[in-house]
Design a protein around this nucleic acid. Structure first.
Lengths: 339, 339
DNA sequence: CGGCCGGGTGGGAGCGCTCCCATCACCACG
DNA sequence: CGTGGTGATGGGAGCGCTCCCACCCGGCCG
């Protein structure tokens, strides 16, 4: 049986068939320009006939690379963004990476032990590049990767002082949009249920709220802020606290759709009508926003595009060794019934 | 500098330090029993001191294995189960696999071209085992993998004639539960919005509906079935068709929560009150079910457990070469406001 | 007491690739 | 017509591991 069978065929086989040396075939496969047109054609023909495809393990062993991109996700965030954030971003990432020689390896961190395991693996060269889908501010991983010179791209702005590529939705801008909308609607007291301030999106959305208030000549009084934990009950609790503190509030900008649902719960419970008594705007435009009662006015971020951009930025570092850069994606306001 | 630095250290280094040969170290690492206690201890000590961990690429090159488990997902289904199905199942899978030597590689199939690429890659030995997270009935991939002798586990029952491991939720049983509940509630005309019959869960849930009706001594008349495509508008359309055909219906079992939301839309539009005029039960217990108006009574399936079981079954095939087996997970009824 | 068996061990030959270097043809120049 | 490039090529030495085989040594049998 010829080497053409299922049992893989090697560079050597191709070389023999094309009447050239192993090295020349390798050059063709890796796109080196130092090959004559005739040789290149012969090799390409042989590759087609034999159905050759390079052996990953051999390639990465000899080349001291892993041919792998790691997608790092920490578990709590998967649960948190229980809405399709993870799935959609991954979709975008896989779409871009599927067309390259890189394999996408999933690294989920459940426990602290996982955290250590994952970091060791990456620092050991377990992946050529790293995509960080969700990290808390204060997580040392991005910094360590940068120090080790391992290309990486984060979803969300990197913490201060860390030189990493990133793709972020325009959280500040989106929040401003939302709050400006509430003000334009005639609301006088615009409070906010903010996400945890130790998470960048939480902090940024809150900053956008402040900015919009400042631009309208209003002050962002501390009594107008309550912090939630990005969950539905958390949003409800924060809203109750706000209601107790500021019974005069007539608008609520909430740092995530999930928390906004909690806010709706609390408002209903308090007998406030939405949007007549209190207008509510969320953030994310998750699936949930469409089916709540009333449907949620919210800020949409292009999640799938976030994934594709992350992959693209990483590839630029990996293949064209471009320096790490950042991209900010535009967000838009989706007006529904709640505000 | 000793080989202990960041720059990896090899079997040979460990062997030198422990005063044994490379082969002996390899035996220890791979758990061979043919090593004396003294040698084993010396090697383990050396490994700890040097912080050795084996090189994946070398191992898989020499061992003719890939040390990899592929998670295959087709894109349309990610979009469909836009609810956290994918994320949660993946969580379960990664949790189990993280503790093993296998890497989890993500393979998403966007286009038909991807389909071919993925199949070729797998049939070439691109992964030691395969986890199929979502496949349509009629997809040849599971069959091809089985023929090639590549261990695999599917989410959902495999198509007829294919010998593959699988983990399935008890769709039939869950549907029976739901319909029995509607009947016990006093509903007289229980119709169903079924999922596409070419998808196993769609067909099974419909079968459960029929079974429950039969058990109650009622006939599953064809006029009581409309097929949706697992989307919200699809569910609404199917419901409209049912309403036109059977204005007397007073209960609806819907094959997914997303379609059930569509059903609620259509019922509201037709002026029917839920659950007073028409009781509605969904399937999945997605996030959405909790926040709809009224909250959806639905059938819960243990998605994360589905993932862990899939991983476990695959590992059994891989490491203990157990034959492929199937597991069916219990579903339960969650009663909320809609039925 | 010679042979034989078998657990424990070391050496060596790859796995399929990349990359460096030597080689060689060929051209242009002095 | 020699010399020095320069572009194209082949050969060889690994990358770090697994696995086969040969080896050595002790105990036990005949």
């Amino acid at each position: 049986m010829t080497p053409a069978g299922r049992g893989q065929c090697t560079l050597e086989d191709v070389a023999a068939r094309a009447g050239v040396s192993r090295a020349t075939v390798s050059r063709v496969v890796n796109g080196s320009p130092l090959v004559s047109v005739a040789a290149r054609r012969a090799v390409e023909l042989a590759i087609d006939e034999l159905g050759y495809s390079p052996n990953r393990a051999a390639r990465s062993l000899a080349g001291q690379r892993s041919e792998t991109v790691a997608l790092v996700v920490s578990e709590p965030s998967v649960r948190l963004f229980a809405d399709p954030f993870f799935a959609r971003a991954t979709l975008g990432i896989a779409g871009v990476l599927g067309a390259t020689r890189y394999q996408l390896v999933l690294l989920m961190m459940h426990s602290d032990a996982d955290h250590i395991r994952v970091e060791r693996h990456l620092l050991r060269g377990g992946a050529d590049g790293v995509l960080l889908l969700s990290t808390r501010a204060g997580d040392p991983l991005p910094g360590h990767l940068a120090e080790a010179g391992i290309p990486s791209v984060m979803a969300g702005r990197p913490p201060e002082g860390v030189e990493a590529g990133f793709v972020d939705a325009d959280n500040v801008g989106g929040a401003r949009l939302a709050v400006a909308h509430l003000i334009a609607r005639g609301c006088r007291v615009v409070a906010t249920v903010a996400g945890p301030t130790d998470m960048v999106p939480g902090a940024d959305r809150r900053a956008g709220w402040e900015k919009a208030l400042a631009e309208a000549g209003r002050s962002a009084d501390a009594s107008l802020v309550a912090e939630g934990d990005f969950t539905r009950p958390g949003g409800a609790d924060a809203t109750r606290a706000l209601l107790a503190r500021r019974p005069d509030l007539d608008a609520l900008f909430v740092g995530s759709d999930l928390m906004a649902l909690g806010a709706l719960d609390a408002l209903r419970e308090a007998g406030r009508r939405v949007p007549e008594d209190v207008a509510v705007v969320g953030f994310d435009d998750s699936e949930l926003a469409r089916s709540s009662d009333p449907p949620l006015t919210t800020v949409r971020q292009p999640i799938e595009q976030l994934g594709t951009e992350m992959a693209r930025l990483l590839l630029a570092q990996l293949d064209d060794d471009a320096p790490p850069t950042g991209v900010v994606l535009r967000t838009e306001l989706v007006v529904r019934g709640s505000g």
